[in-house]
Design a protein around this nucleic acid. Sequence first.
DNA 1: GTAATTACTGGAAACGTTTCCAGTAACGTT
DNA 2: AACGTTACTGGAAACGTTTCCAGTAATTAC
Lengths: 340, 340
Amino acid sequence: MTNIKDLAQHCGVAVSTVSRVLNEHPDVSEETRQKVLRAASELHYIPNTSARNLVRTTSDTIALLVKGVNNPFFAKLIKVLEREIAQSGYTLELHQMDTSEDELRIGAQLTNERKLIGILFLGGRFNYSPEELSLIKVPSVFCTYTNSFGTLNAESYSSVAIDDKNAARFAVDTLISRGHRRIAILTDNQDDHSISELRFQGYQDALKRHNIPFDPTLVACTGTFSDMGAIYRATSELIERDRSFTAIFAIADLMAVAAIKALSDHGRRVPEDCSVVAIDGLELSEYLLPTLTTLVQPVEDMGLACANILIELIESRGKHRQVTFETLLREGGSVRRLNE
Amino acid sequence: MTNIKDLAQHCGVAVSTVSRVLNEHPDVSEETRQKVLRAASELHYIPNTSARNLVRTTSDTIALLVKGVNNPFFAKLIKVLEREIAQSGYTLELHQMDTSEDELRIGAQLTNERKLIGILFLGGRFNYSPEELSLIKVPSVFCTYTNSFGTLNAESYSSVAIDDKNAARFAVDTLISRGHRRIAILTDNQDDHSISELRFQGYQDALKRHNIPFDPTLVACTGTFSDMGAIYRATSELIERDRSFTAIFAIADLMAVAAIKALSDHGRRVPEDCSVVAIDGLELSEYLLPTLTTLVQPVEDMGLACANILIELIESRGKHRQVTFETLLREGGSVRRLNE
DNA sequence: GTAATTACTGGAAACGTTTCCAGTAACGTT
DNA sequence: AACGTTACTGGAAACGTTTCCAGTAATTAC
């Protein structure tokens, strides 16, 4: 493998000169510049990243710390993130965390190996104390969830999200405005300080505003966003437990898919016998039968925002900021007006 | 940041001794071992990866070069891959390639930066010459596609795949055995040397074996695996072009989803008016209405195989090998026997 | 009691860069 | 003619490790 020393020798110049050429420093004559460049290409010179990072005491890799990689909503997000990051000359590392508790631990560990210049958190919970957050020593951005529980001040963290509570409220409002009053909810969790809890709160809020009593028997917890079987079973139990509900609010599109199947298997058709509304706006949902009525998250814009905020932080061109995106109701065929 | 020198100084030993302790070399007294370990934890010592990699002239990162990250079949695969790789102490880097032509170029480039010890190729084409392949100077595995076109010998590359041609033939056979003869195909491409072409060949084979003439008007090319809109449009055009087909073979589950929607929008119900069979076996497909009849790829096993082969190559514990997995027909509700 | 082995340790080179500092030559300014 | 500036270049230190080599002390073998 050719290194910078070989180039120097080959050209009859000093290594420092070669380095200057390679790093596009000024103060190097056009003649030597060409000479070095030609040698570099002839000898197939490729810089050694480790050596460079060692002396520069940085790296070029950003870590994506994600819980539930196979969540289809993340797929598009990851696509956008990688593209943006690559375009800015950085590299994306993928790390999976199994529990939300891992996220800070893994983050802190990776940070310390000094091979990271930034972290993107995706799909975890978010109720950190300032002390916990300070374990992360590199710029980071929380994707798809924000500091809705904690006590962090806006100068100390960055996030990109929708207003989950509000979106959930809007989704449930949509059902209520169509005459539904017995509305079940299909959620991952009620109290894990993740978006699940926020959306659950939004559900409760909507009911309260319309003076509809909250009925815990209408809550189906799946404990997962991606395990279709578990979601199906949770819905089935709900159906067997209570036959009075006329609508389901699923906090994610994929949950709605499993729910619709469970309803169908129990002889209840959507939307005739039960309406369904969800949050996500997957492309897929437009191609289901019936098409899903869902609140669309602007996933592309969210990905761009995540990447840009992080890169600005890394290049110290920006300060921490929190971005909240609007969701848009996409009406499909899964909701029906209830006749009195 | 504490480094190995600080530890040495703090303990009153040489850096080499500290290094030995940290790398679990033998030949170091229990006493000093404890002393160093205690100091390391007290001073929050974290090794510098760049320095280590520099002197060892390796790294710990494996690159995943993927075309179409948002392909839902890949989601689960990536999940398994990351877990296996992380468990073996390596790190996974994500790189997206836009065109299949990128794949070798990007691979070669990354290889050369010497920050990579292995590459996983996912979702590209595969018709390389030995010369092209030799550009990649680190162990690599081709996931989900194999050397079905080229001239590589088995000692020079590794791959994990299903027998795409055979699977497609089986899928189409299933339709034929149910009485279908006018069978349309929904494919990404006919001649791009990727799995699309293989599956297309399998389709043609099945027809030939049953003396059903191949009709090009029954071929709908989408040019994509993941853009639902494009798939929908391609199917719509097919429907408007020919109303005689009684079944569709979609080379991927997601294509089948879009196709079923297109059929429905044109007043044709599945399976009553048209049967649909696909390849993939996404979990999702079991929860559609109707459930999809599809050939299941053992995605979990495939992921494990990819990771294991690569890791064995890296640790030079294994030789190149090609693994082909069996697919399994999962009968859903999207196929119906045709009455004569 | 000497030699050979073992157990442990320290010093220093090496990995491939970047960057600081000093230096030379040519040129323009006074 | 002396001086400052500019344009360019080389030497060497530094980044934080690992690993080779040599060396000492203690133990074992004869």
